[in-house]
Design a protein around this nucleic acid. Structure first.
Length: 616
DNA sequence: GTAGGGTTAG
């Protein structure tokens, strides 16, 4: 009783001072509700406490009290309940309150739309928005900023464009919250020019709008543009926060710009940016994609809190570097720690880690555990793809083919592509031919498929088929994403395209590539002409091969870096067989460690041997 | 009272 006297005020007006005691102790809350003649102010104060502390049960009691006492809550109070239930992740309760409202304000609509969009229910959010328009309620800047975050997917983007014109009509286009939401939507739809235009037209900019446009470029893989924009905006006085750096790190990961990445890391450490998990995850990924797993692991080990993404980023790192044993060790640790549950990406990383690391049986066992429900993640298409990879790598090409036929999904191009790769490595022309042509039907415009099938025919001496394949490719007017390789030297990126003659040291590089070719031929290098599908004579083919961007970058590395130091090269596509071979000769003849990152993985080549075991 | 940007995989 003493405590009750102390906590419960005698005058309802002073309730607010004591609410933090009350809501923590339910019996006292109950007493408070009974003791007072509750009015709007009291209810609102209690509810505010419940919203701030996300106190679901306590809020429910307040709600129940309102119903019991037949108190008639205002639109304002009902809207606060929508917000409260949304914060407590109970959309059902929120929607119930919303449904029971006979009168709704723009705020009630917006709060409900926001609830759905925050929980990822995009279509429900959009539906509600349309209902709102039909009801004659005018959206405000809050509504627009919210609803645009739910404009994803093909249908969402179409609606998003229409909402854009509505925004112009209602004069909200100058609003910085609406603007950042809008430009983000365009960027996510791949319409970076529209995003840029929205950004340029904003009368004022802040951290969020700047971050949105930088991240927009980075997420589309326009890494150099993202970096350039970041530098420009920084020069114009933009403030950065941890989200900005996350976006910049995404761009640097793509570019494998280790020195620049370290610079950002140092800056983050020096400034007083708290160590947010998201930023640390980005750092793990950046170091791993820049080839430095030791740094990634150091960050991972010192994190106070880890999410599934932290584990996944680290696992993917080991996987891409072919460190299968580390993948399994870390996965075991994750399961032993039992703080974070593995998700579908985790298993994807583990399976592809086993594949890249040559641990086929271990990978197949894990897939088996997955299908028998021991892991708690249901197998998806990508996991099936990993199994095809695992079987193919261990030479069980027929088994992989049978596995595909029995899959519960229609095989995707990626799955056939994986099997085609296996057929090339294990010279299985029969299955390879079937798979190759199946793949050309699904993906007639992917030049990579023609090249691998050509490699396969060439290995079997079927030159006539190589020729007809080339003709087929010409007829289909295959557009190939231009191959590009680059390397970082003293914080500057040197980029090369095929047969590129734009580099300031092009003469030297050209001479070097030819010199290397001659020298390597003396010790056994034979150019793999089946990597070239142009209709030219053999001499020309060899010339084209020597012009491949990886060879230019590797040769530049030999010239521009000190003797015996490692050469780091990045390629935007998968490396071709001939260039892979060429890199092996560089590592052997010049005693250089070559680290080559292609679209799929890292190739660490030492003394003529590659960590990929010639399977990629 | 309601609002915008972020990390792994493909």
């Amino acid at each position: 009783m003493l405590l009750t006297k102390h906590v419960l005020p005698s005058n309802p007006r002073t309730l607010s001072i004591h609410t933090h005691h009350i809501h923590l102790q339910q019996p006292l809350l109950q007493m408070a509700l009974q003791a007072f003649n509750m009015n709007f102010e009291n209810y609102n104060q209690l509810l505010n406490e419940c919203i701030n502390k996300k106190a679901y049960r306590e809020g429910q009691r307040v709600h129940a009290h309102i119903i019991k006492t037949r108190y008639l809550p205002s639109v304002f109070l009902r809207t606060r309940f929508i917000v409260f239930y949304t914060k407590c992740h109970s959309l059902k309760d929120a929607h119930h309150v919303f449904d029971e409202m006979t009168e709704r304000s723009v705020v009630s609509w917006t709060a409900m739309i926001s609830g759905y969009s925050q929980r990822g229910y995009a279509s429900q959010a959009l539906n509600l928005f349309l209902q709102m328009l039909r009801s004659g309620t005018e959206p405000n800047e809050f509504t627009f900023a919210t609803v645009l975050t739910s404009c994803t997917g093909s249908l969402g983007f179409i609606l998003g464009r229409q909402i854009h014109s509505l925004i112009i009509k209602s004069n909200y286009e100058d609003h910085v919250y609406v603007g950042s939401s809008l430009l983000d939507m365009y960027a996510k739809d791949g319409k970076i020019h529209e995003a840029q235009t929205v950004f340029e037209c904003l009368p004022e900019r802040d951290v969020v709008s700047c971050t949105a446009i930088i991240s927009g470029y980075a997420q589309l893989g326009l890494d150099e543009e993202a970096l350039e924009l970041f530098r420009r905006l920084q020069g114009e006085g933009m403030q950065s926060n941890y989200v900005t750096y996350t976006g910049v790190l995404t761009a640097l990961s793509g570019l494998a710009a280790l020195d620049l990445g370290k610079q950002v890391h140092n800056h983050v450490l020096r400034s007083e940016i708290p160590s947010f998990v998201v930023l640390q995850n980005s750092l793990i990924d950046m170091y791993s994609k820049c080839g430095n797993l030791t740094y990634s692991r150091r960050i991972f080990d010192t994190m106070c809190e880890r999410t599934a993404i932290s584990w996944n980023a680290m696992l993917v790192g080991y996987s891409k570097h072919g460190e299968g044993r580390e993948v399994l060790k870390l996965f075991t640790l994750m399961r032993e720690e039992n703080k974070v549950k593995p998700d579908s990406v985790t298993i994807l990383a583990v399976l592809s880690g086993c594949s890249h690391g040559g641990l086929e049986d271990r990978g197949l066992n894990i897939f088996h555990d997955m299908t028998s429900g021991k892991i708690g993640v249901k197998p998806e298409m990508e996991h099936f793809g990993c199994v095809v990879d695992l079987l193919g790598r261990s030479g069980r090409v027929e088994e992989a083919f049978e596995f595909i036929k029995k899959m519960p999904f229609e095989p995707t191009a990626a799955i056939w592509g994986s099997l085609l790769g296996a057929c090339r490595v294990h010279s299985n022309v029969d299955i390879g031919e079937f798979v190759g042509h199946r793949l050309l039907e699904i993906e007639p415009a992917n030049a990579g498929n023609y090249v691998i099938l050509s490699n396969l025919y060439a290995s079997a001496g079927r030159w006539e088929d190589v020729r007809s394949l080339r003709d087929l490719m010409l007829r289909k007017t295959v557009m190939k994403e231009p191959g590009r390789s680059w390397m970082e030297l003293d914080q500057v990126l040197h980029t090369f395209h095929a047969s590129d003659r734009s580099h300031p040291r092009r003469e030297e590089i050209c001479v070097k590539v030819k010199e290397l070719s001659v020298r390597f031929k003396e010790v056994g290098y034979v150019p793999d002409l089946s990597c070239v599908l142009h209709d030219v004579d053999e001499e020309q083919k060899e010339k084209i091969l020597l012009g491949h961007s990886e060879k230019l970058a590797l040769s530049f590395g030999l010239i521009a870096t000190p003797e015996h130091s490692p050469i780091r090269v990045i390629k935007n596509l998968r490396i071709c067989v001939d260039c892979h071979n060429f890199a092996k000769y560089i590592s052997k003849v010049y005693r250089r460690e070559v680290s080559l990152r292609d679209k799929n993985r890292f190739h660490r080549i030492v003394g003529g041997k590659c960590s990929c075991g010639d399977y990629w």
